[in-house]
């Protein structure tokens, strides 16, 4: 059977062809392709790692930014509260100062009024007593013209003194 006995010529040419094909491809094609495949695989791996890192960093940055914002809000609120507190305090202080000042003014006014009142009272009393003395002198001069009237008065006064005691 021709099919099952290898033909020498074909074996020879097959060997030559295969050897040449192998030499050419082994020198110029396969190593280049394999190297490129590996390089590309490495590059893709690196790319994946890089992307993962970048995503991680981005996530970190986001959470960091969020925390910064939260802190800033907190500080803002604190500052506002502080300002509010300061405002009330200032108002309070101003009020207190105003009260003190008003009191001082009032006191001074009161003092002046009091002095004026005392002075006028004193003057009034002097004047009133002068008038009273004048009137009393006139009244006494008229009423005590008679003896009896004088005695009666003396009695009456004595009685008053007695009753008082």
């Amino acid at each position: 059977m021709e099919l099952f006995t290898p033909e020498l010529g074909l074996v020879f040419w097959m060997f030559v062809t295969f050897a040449l094909l192998f030499l050419i491809l082994a020198k110029f094609a396969w190593p280049v392709i394999i190297k490129m495949l590996e390089e590309r695989a490495d590059m893709i791996d690196k790319g994946v790692v890089y992307a993962q890192n970048a995503k991680e960093q981005l996530d970190n940055a986001k959470s960091e930014a969020a925390s910064y914002i939260a802190e800033a809000r907190k500080q803002q609120a604190e500052i506002l509260r502080e300002a509010d507190k300061m405002k009330t305090q200032i108002i309070e202080e101003a009020k207190a100062a105003a009260t003190v000042e008003a009191k001082k003014v009032m006191d001074a006014a009161n003092l002046a009024i009091e002095q004026a009142r005392k002075a006028s009272e004193k003057q009034l009393r002097q004047e009133v007593s002068a008038f009273a003395l004048g009137i009393a002198e006139k009244v006494v001069r008229e009423n005590l013209a008679s003896e009896s009237a004088q005695t009666k008065l003396v009695d009456k006064l004595l009685n008053e003194v007695e009753n008082k005691n």
Binding site: E7, L8, G9, L10, F12, W13, M14, T17, F18, L20, L21, I24, L25, F28, A29, W30, I33
Partner: peptide, 23 residues
């Protein structure tokens, strides 16, 4: 007999195709 028979010629065509693929 080292004739370039039909099979040998076909071998060369196949080898050429493989070269084309590789290159």
């Amino acid at each position: 007999d080292l004739s370039i028979t039909k099979d040998v010629a076909a071998l060369w065509i196949a080898a050429l195709v493989v070269l084309l693929i590789g290159f």
